[in-house]
Design a protein around this nucleic acid. Structure first.
Lengths: 147, 147
DNA sequence: TGATAAATAGAAACAGTTTTCATTTAAGGA
DNA sequence: TCCTTAAATGAAAACTGTTTCTATTTATCA
């Protein structure tokens, strides 16, 4: 586990520091999306001193390295971070409880076709994110948290 | 045309001010996405005094009213705004020249199915955005602008 | 034309993020 | 194990984009 994280960090040519390992642990523990500050707060329980810039720096590096993934807030220009990112997939995010569920559906091929044929352009990346209410929040209807 | 914009504004219970009309004109003139500041700069050519907050307020109102649409920058947490938003569709954006092309393809039905069956949740909205290179930028390869 | 509510400018506040730089720490070699 | 070096970090400050506040201006409608 911890071993695992060390290997991941080595793989990115990043030193295996306690803070990086804990950052990965924090993300791995959660099934909801977390803001940089959320992550900072959780990590601070484990370190006497921890700067927010450290969190930002590491999120950036780990995201760039493809180890973690992120979603964009449904109606604010903010990123939220998620646990590990295995292979290409998209996310259903519950706008009420922040839960994230991986979605295997991906229209990549169709998008490629549409762009190649209709626009004669080339796809570099795509964002597909589904915002909605998860099963649990649907049941306690009305009790939907603001987001 | 200008008449048209007035009607749109009335339809949203917004007063038809010169600045709102010019904002819509500016967006309508462009086939590229514009940041709030881009829009401000273009609008300033027409007004001696124009505050950036006015641009933000109006973008927000018009977006909320469904009159304009926006995209998220492919790798920064920033919104960019686009000309009018007719009916539901998605955008191909060229990361080099910022050109935007409407894409009619939409996997809405599939998404609904996946979420209903796989997650037992409900879709409220979805983001589908294709980032890539348009035909023109593909041709002048190598000359791709930073973004 | 006048009254009223909405819209605006300008300044300031704000939130989230990034930079800077001095200090600390991990990793690899003696 | 100790030393060296480059990388990582903390703290403060800077920065960027956005929003709030308040007094003034303006569109709308009677």
């Amino acid at each position: 586990m911890k071993q695992d994280f060390q290997q991941i960090l080595r793989g990115l040519n990043l030193k295996s520091t306690p803070k990086r390992v804990v950052l990965l642990e924090v993300l791995d523990d959660e099934s909801v999306y977390l803001s940089p500050e959320d992550i900072w707060n959780r990590m601070k329980k484990r370190f006497r001193r921890l700067g927010l810039p450290t969190v930002y720096r590491n999120l950036e590096e780990l995201y760039a390295g493809g180890v973690i993934s992120r979603v964009i807030h449904p109606n604010r220009q903010l990123y939220y971070y998620l646990c590990r990112n295995e292979e290409h997939h998209h996310h259903f995010i519950c706008v009420s409880c922040r839960r994230v569920v991986d979605v295997s559906f991906c229209a990549e091929k169709e998008l490629q076709d549409v762009v190649r044929e209709g626009i004669q352009g080339k796809v570099l990346s795509h964002i597909l994110q589904i915002n909605g209410l998860c099963r649990h929040c649907l049941q306690k209807d009305g009790a939907v948290h603001a987001y």
